[in-house]
Write a protein that binds this DNA or RNA. Structure first.
Lengths: 125, 125
DNA sequence: ACAAGTGTACTATAGTCATAGCACAATGAT
DNA sequence: ATCATTGTGCTATGACTATAGTACACTTGT
């Protein structure tokens, strides 16, 4: 199973960060339809958040039709969720959020956007 | 004076977006030390936010030592706020850390570095 | 049947962000 | 001196996020 990670300094709420990582995982095939996700309590312990926060993330994904929860058993990736897990629009939204967050932090530290982009270009090798 | 803009869909709070733009402006010389910023009420009207939100942004910047407010007169950029307190080495290290962190998060969400850079280029408008 | 593990549901508390509205104090132009 | 403009300070409200704790119901393996 994927390594889930939280950025506690990000303004993006935890439940959203969790949901985004599940979506991304399903979208690129790292999590397959039918797979069982970590239990609510397990995920909560690993990420050091309240179980309710994980519940919120999972519920959100169930509303989107990506997950299927079976009481007493676990939370599973819905069959047929693979292809449509992330529409192009949602992907763009996620990327937008990510970049805005990043640029905001960079500017707070006094970096110009051009300077940042240049640095990233270097990282491409 | 700079064109201040808010992204209302961003998870970054308004007061922080305002503060970031002031910081960036001062940092790159678009706002000079001694310059008078837009008044609280004026800024609030332009950005369509509550005056209290602008107050919060300005107060935040005053705590950082960037601004100097004079009751009844206006809010000014502090003399000596321009020259950064960071050495070039420290700046480069901070930028490196920031970028590595960012790239890691982007990859967690399944984005390719090239794709991310392209998106950032767009944000330069 | 039982026990352990799982999801469900609820209440209460707290912090942050933003809005709304009001009264007060200092400045600057006239 | 007066008045419009500016910043200051306060209270209250609402939405959202997250935490804490509890009780309950279903599933699975034994």
């Amino acid at each position: 199973m994927i390594d889930f990670v939280l950025d506690k300094r990000s303004p993006v709420p935890f439940y959203r960060q969790i949901a985004d990582q599940v979506l991304a995982g399903v979208s690129r095939g790292a999590i397959a339809p039918g797979d069982r996700l970590p239990t609510i309590r397990e995920m909560a312990v690993n990420l050091e958040v309240n179980p309710n926060t994980v519940v919120k993330a999972y519920s959100y994904l169930e509303m989107m039709g990506v997950l299927d929860t079976q009481q007493g058993s676990g939370v599973y990736v819905r069959r047929g969720a693979a292809s449509g897990a992330l529409s192009e629009t949602e992907r763009r939204r996620m990327l937008g959020d990510l970049c805005r967050d990043f640029v905001g932090r960079a500017q707070t530290l006094g970096f110009d956007l051009a300077e940042v982009v240049e640095r990233l270009e270097q990282m491409r090798g």
